[in-house]
Amino acid sequence: MTAHHPGEQLLRQYVRGDDVPADQLWAVEAHLESCAPCRGRLAPDPIAEQVWADLAPVLDRTPQMPPARSWLRHVSHWVSPVAGPWLAMILLVTAVAVALDQAGSVARGQISLVLLVAPVLPVLGVAASWGRAMDPAHELTAATPRAGLPLVFRRTVAVLAVVVPGLLVASQLTGASLTQWMLPCLAFTTCTLALGGLIGITRAAITLIAGWAAGIVLPTIALSRTSVALDVAATPVWAAVLAAGLIVIAVRFRTQSRSS
């Protein structure tokens, strides 16, 4: 660069952002890019630096805006804002099933209601968490990037976080074994998600619940005998169903995330 450094006055005008003619402005800017001493002449005022140094740490700690209720923010990232009553209902149903089992009022205590409702509860919760019928803001939600599997996963985790502890307590009280209800419960949840990808979560939930009621609940009550499907011997079958559901979801998730 030649030794044509900008004069003191021009440089001050440039710093202040005054109305410098465009050609001069460009010349000053181009010169500053390559001339370190002139950039040094631009160095900020020591007072400004001092003020900034005092302010910067405070700025990081000062909230910019009044924060919203933070518990709500954390909860609404996982639980559908309309799922509250449904989750309460799920716990209530669990409690009622335990009470009836304790009283031995269903088929003289030969069958366990807890086992019969266990697979259905998470399906209800998942259906309540995602769908046009349940969620008033579904149209808004459906157009956002988190819509679809990412959001459904989060809400399913939240539903399971309510259902599983509730059933855990219930099985402690009624003496049902863990694998007897846990595997059907998880298998039905994954099947809802896997089937939901094809026909929609709500329809998938209705199909599964109807199938469970017709295939297992009705015969059980009619014959007053626990179905073979709920026997401990059926565990490998449920495990296989669970695995199949997980594989379907994983495949769908991979194709979705690869394409986005």
Binding site: A68, P81, A137
Partner: peptide, 17 residues
């Protein structure tokens, strides 16, 4: 016709979206 969550405040609603 957009539905919303009645219990949310305006700020919470927009923050959620």
């Amino acid at each position: 016709h957009f539905g919303y969550y009645k219990r949310f405040t305006v700020r919470e609603f927009v923050e959620y979206l």
